[in-house]
Nucleic acid binder design. Structure first.
Lengths: 205, 205
DNA sequence: CCACTCAGTAAACATGTGTTCGCCGAAGTT
DNA sequence: AACTTCGGCGAACACATGTTTACTGAGTGG
């Protein structure tokens, strides 16, 4: 694998990343549909025309940001759903993981929450694809759990949807509140997961 | 009450409403943070400067739209949570009501979903206030249900949050899918509510 | 009937925008 | 060493933007 790619491609990737970083920062207080291409290049310190060497337009940039924000999360999520420990322990682990991720990458999380239903169709679609992939992976992991014996695939997928939606909701709730309210948001998230776990236990009654 | 307000104030309210209607239509495929004031006046057919006779800026317009989209919904929601009939019947009623509302006012629903985490702070805040009010009202209604005996207020509020979040999620999921997928979205929504209901029954174990 | 209020107008302001063009010079290739 | 590739530049294009200004004329109330 890893060809030590030439100093040319390296530089290109570097400025591409700089564009994405600056864009993400600018997107902290506006939506993608109002993000100007010149605004981004100005923040990076380069000429507007150079933007086109990397992206076809701001929508394209947005799709790349989705990939960066969500693409690397699949492994993390699979790891979070491991079925070891009591329900309580698993809930604690999952919620702690969300909290840590939001604290580590707040701008990414904000971007996803904002553009999930935002005004730029290709970006919305890209986010939808990733979240559906998450749900599929969670559903698969849930299927492996002995607790899920007797569940139909459709019901597993339904449950997975609840988990993924809840994860996104919790993450964006963490962003809205001030720093002090973090623990109470997480406590609520844990209670909600406990509620779902109870429903899960009695689903086949 | 209702002073038959003069033909002057009547006209003013009429063009104000025209501005809001045109804006809502333009917002079907962009976010508020990119909505231009001129764009709106052009759609209505009036001079840009006249906009300021009604709103301080597009953010102000947005807040007014939130009021219009969500303000009239409190009664509907209270009516939807009435505690008559079996759980199954109540779930069917609630989900049908969401479906009907989305079909009747798709632009309003889209606007709320989009700006809930959008780039315009005052609008985000206005939506947050309304949704919190919804949750409070639902929590109060749940408290009146004999089934909620023994629940702490905090837990009731937590449950209400699940219901409100689920309502918003379902509504925006209905918008994303094509017309044919409506029934499957509603079926999933019903199953998820059934899951929550089960958890609710066993909460005090 | 007359003074006054005020929603809507037209024009001008200074800036901002996306996109195209030809050019440069360092990196890569033979 | 000669030749090609290509990321970035600066300038120019034709518009679009928010906001202010002085003005008009219909609605209002004494």
């Amino acid at each position: 694998m890893s060809h030590t790619l030439g100093i040319r491609q390296a530089q290109k990737q570097k400025t591409r990343q700089a564009l994405m970083d600056s864009a993400l920062q600018l997107l902290e207080d506006q939506s993608l549909s109002s993000l100007g291409l010149r605004e981004v290049t100005r923040a990076v310190g380069m000429a507007p025309a150079a933007f086109y060497r990397h992206f076809a337009g701001t929508a394209d940039l947005g799709v790349a940001l989705v990939e960066q924000a969500l693409g690397s999360l699949h492994g993390t999520i699979r790891a979070a759903i491991v079925t070891t420990g009591s329900s309580e322990e698993r809930i604690d682990r999952a919620v702690a993981l969300i909290g840590a991720h939001v604290r580590a990458h707040p701008a990414h999380v904000r971007f996803i929450a904002r553009e999930r239903h935002g005004g730029v169709a290709p970006v919305r679609e890209a986010i939808g694809v990733q979240l559906r992939r998450f749900a599929d992976e969670v559903a698969e992991a849930l299927g492996a759990d002995p607790e899920s014996a007797g569940w139909t695939p459709a019901d597993l997928r339904m449950l997975a949807g609840v988990y993924v939606d809840h994860m996104v909701m919790t993450a964006s709730a963490l962003l809205e509140g001030d720093a002090g309210s973090e623990e109470s948001v997480l406590a609520t998230a844990r209670a909600q997961l406990r509620l779902v776990t109870l429903g899960r236990h009695h689903w086949l009654d």
